[in-house]
């Protein structure tokens, strides 16, 4: 599979991949974007957190914003007013428990994770 995003994280591209991921993992974080300056810091923070023991139960992945399968993220009600990439969604037991739009620094990502996965 061709990867589109500048990230070492697993990249999901289809609706079924996202569904499998959120149905088979309790805690999932998906950052859906492009390779722009607002997106790369979020992917970068995810890559670092993925290696930390305290976040080892979270599945961190990225998804290209422009693939057809990204409609599963783009059309979420939580993203209705989002206009800034990346759209970053946090799922717990298959349900959306958090969503952010645009760049987030590592500190705010950790804060969101702590709120979404207490």
């Amino acid at each position: 599979m061709q990867k589109y995003l500048e990230s070492s994280l697993d990249e999901v591209q289809t609706i079924s991949e996202v569904e499998n991921l959120i149905n088979n993992n309790e805690k999932v974080a998906i950052s859906c974007g492009r390779n722009g300056p607002m997106c790369l810091p979020v992917y970068g923070a995810f890559e670092v957190l993925k290696e930390k023991e305290r976040y080892s139960d979270i599945k961190f992945v990225v998804m290209p914003f422009d693939v057809p399968g990204a409609s599963i993220i783009r059309e979420l009600p939580e993203c209705r007013f989002f206009r800034g990439l990346p759209f970053t969604i946090y799922y717990k037991n298959g349900k959306v428990v958090g969503a952010t739009s645009s760049i987030q620094d590592a500190k705010s990502i950790k804060k969101t994770i702590n709120e979404c996965f207490p």
């Binding site: 300056p37 607002m38 997106c39 206009r83 990439l85 739009s101 645009s102």
Partner: peptide, 17 residues
Amino acid sequence: FKGRGIHYCATCDGDFY
């Protein structure tokens, strides 16, 4: 409203508008 009407990058978010 950051990312929902307020933006800092034309390349990233311009095409939404």
